[in-house]
Design a protein around this nucleic acid. Sequence first.
DNA 1: CCAAAAGTGTTCTTCGTACACCCATGT
DNA 2: ACATGGGTGTACGAAGAACACTTTTGG
Lengths: 239, 239
Amino acid sequence: MEQNTLPLNDLYAPEKRIYVATDCIIFGFDKGILKLLVFERRVDPFKGTLSLIGSFVKPNEAANDAARRVLNEITGLDNIFMEELKTYSDVERDPGARCISIAHYALIRIDDYDKELVEKHGAIWYEFDKLPKLVLDHDIMIEDALSRLRRKAKFYPIGFELLPKKFTIPQFQKLYEAIFQQTLDTRNFRKKLMSLKLLIALDEKDKSGSKKGAFLYKFDYKKYKRLQQKGFNFSLFKN
Amino acid sequence: MEQNTLPLNDLYAPEKRIYVATDCIIFGFDKGILKLLVFERRVDPFKGTLSLIGSFVKPNEAANDAARRVLNEITGLDNIFMEELKTYSDVERDPGARCISIAHYALIRIDDYDKELVEKHGAIWYEFDKLPKLVLDHDIMIEDALSRLRRKAKFYPIGFELLPKKFTIPQFQKLYEAIFQQTLDTRNFRKKLMSLKLLIALDEKDKSGSKKGAFLYKFDYKKYKRLQQKGFNFSLFKN
DNA sequence: CCAAAAGTGTTCTTCGTACACCCATGT
DNA sequence: ACATGGGTGTACGAAGAACACTTTTGG
């Protein structure tokens, strides 16, 4: 058979290969509103329609590297919180060709990104609730990403990835209210958050939100990592 | 360029395609012990070494259909609990060729499967703690699957998928003890479980475990589905 | 009658939740 | 001086955690 004569990097020749892509659901949080970064699709079919940011996975890169590459190309950002969401592999999902997409979601500090770069690529921040219909199955990806974000934010301190490194408690509460679409009691929220002892109090105030100003905090990642290894569970809600 | 002459089912021609496979981490639970179904790899490289059950994803099937297909081929089972775990896409993960694998994990009632079929394919149940080294990155997949199973079993009633449809409370507790590798207090476990009111008490006893015999129960899936839609949270543990 | 597993209640502590007022400051 | 958002404490009820004995029955 021809199989034995093939080089070691293709022993599976009779099998069919498939296009593999990645799409990124990029969350941001600005002025109390949860936002999503989308842009205009660069390839046919549906060239020009609104789409998540994505790319084909190249032969020499892993899927998460592809996702980081495309995120960096468009925002100029590195070291972003990003996680695999799930794979979308319906046979009919993309009329352009049989193509699976390994979706990733990312959380970015909305003021950090390179605005010029974003504009150059025609990227747009949409309020989450005001998103138009996107191309292919991207709407489903977004729904899935939101429920993942909700689940994750209950048990892991990922909300901080959406806030500036220095943030106030009211800001943090507003973020949770935006993610979970419900209002929370100020006193209980603060008490619970403080009881975790994972915030580092700073001697600065942020006066942009009120005349009195609110104290700024930093999240203590190192302490969290240590506690996590001992089985500690970050959790702001019971349910 | 040749691109414009291509049929609509391949508009991405300059991009490279990649082999897409799926591997299944199949959990079972037998006599108080968590087990995993593995078998001997059917293709080169490493033909004959122990491996998870897998297959290439064909051009005309979704990844989860491929996973169900291969699970059915080997166990004869349909309608199994199965979920996508994650994608493994390191460039170097498979020396046979550039190939990504979309891993799935499945929970099966260990007495349900077709034993002949399993034997015919050279499949073997291994105790989870006594697994030898498997091929490629399958060891990592297994670790990931176990932590997913743990996380999921805390908040969703998936443990029942590993037990016979009729089961006893002590059986169920042993399952949780096996999954979480810790002993649990009988009284508190039973109290918590019963307070959920999701078990249907039967008038039968299972006497295989003791002389006294333990009452059998069924899980009330319909009720659970209803409650879940109202935001109910199945949870046997706080942490 | 005894070994072996099934089944059951109470107390204490912790945590969640509901709820209302004073504080600091810029205009 | 006042409007605006920031910050704080207490009391009640629910749920988790610790803990030991009785019941059943086959051999």
